[in-house]
Amino acid sequence: MTDEPLLRVSALSKFYGSRVGCENVTFDLWPGEVLAVVGESGSGKTTLLNCLSTRLLPSSGTASYRMRDGQFRELYRMGEAERRFLMRTDWGFVHQNPADGLRMTVSAGANVGERLMAVGDRHYGKIRATAVDWLSRVEIDEDRIDDEPRAFSGGMRQRLQIARNLVTGPRLVFMDEPTGGLDVSVQARLLDLLRGLVTDLGLAAIVVTHDLAVARLLSQRMMVMKDGRVVESGLTDRVLDDPRAPYTQLLVSSILQV
């Protein structure tokens, strides 16, 4: 176990002209830690996630990632090819809409297999066997391996997207409202599955959600955002059980009244 963080973020800001996307965000993320970023729509949490995952370049600030050789690399100084390689191998990104994270016109097995090929696997039998194993881990029957994702339900697509992201053994996974748009019963099963996989694999994850129940179930630590700024952060149970910022108190009380 290392005594250094996996990701160091310092004074990260993104502006769209005069509009604030996120401003002056600073935190460290440790190996195996799940950080939830919560806030209402327009709070800046998705902008922050897109900056951290290099889908968006920030206006200012730095984010340094500890590579597998132990060296920290400044993400925004990497070349585009280097960042893309990181996204295909060491990182995963689970979209709210699984169609954004899947190839809808190739089979479920091929969706998982593509990620394996990106890290150098070439043996067809081995790739297919690994795909079968991962489909079973996300509760998709082996006999659906040759079906295309468009034949799947929303919950199955989301589970397939998770398998596609985790099959390469990433160290960091970004999740953007991973249970958004799903029925409550489907959400509950997906959350149980995600929590188990994250724990079993020792993943670090940054989860963006407006749902405090998702944050409590998945994360050890959380940041609350409002108008692009972090208004409160701390251990998840502490923030939810003893919120200190007025905005966090409002968020928590609004959930309790439902």
Rank of each mutant, 00 (worst) to 15 (best):
G70F: 04
L75P: 00
G79N: 03
L75R: 02
R68T: 14
A81H: 09
E74W: 01
W91H: 06
F93T: 02
Y76M: 12
Y65T: 01
E80K: 08
T89W: 14
W91E: 03
N97V: 08
D90N: 13
F93C: 01
S64N: 12
E80P: 03
R68F: 05
Y76N: 02
N97F: 14
E80N: 08
A99T: 11
G92I: 05
G101M: 09
R77H: 13
F93Q: 02
E82G: 13
Q71Y: 08
A81W: 05
R88P: 01
D69R: 06
A99L: 12
F72W: 01
Y65F: 15
R73H: 08
V94A: 05
F93P: 00
D69V: 02
Y76H: 05
R66W: 04
A81R: 14
Y65R: 05
D69M: 07
R66Y: 05
L75K: 01
L86K: 03
A99M: 11
H95N: 13
Y76S: 08
M78C: 06
M78F: 03
R83E: 10
S64W: 08
R88N: 08
Q71V: 15
Q96P: 03
D90L: 10
A99Q: 13
R83Q: 14
R73F: 08
F72S: 02
Q71P: 03
E74N: 11
T89L: 08
R84M: 12
F85P: 06
Q96K: 09
Y65G: 02
A99D: 07
A81I: 10
R77F: 12
Y76R: 02
E82A: 13
E82F: 08
G79D: 04
M78N: 01
M67E: 11
R73D: 06
D100Y: 08
R84S: 15
Y76V: 09
M78H: 01
V94K: 03
F72T: 02
S64T: 15
F93D: 02
L75S: 01
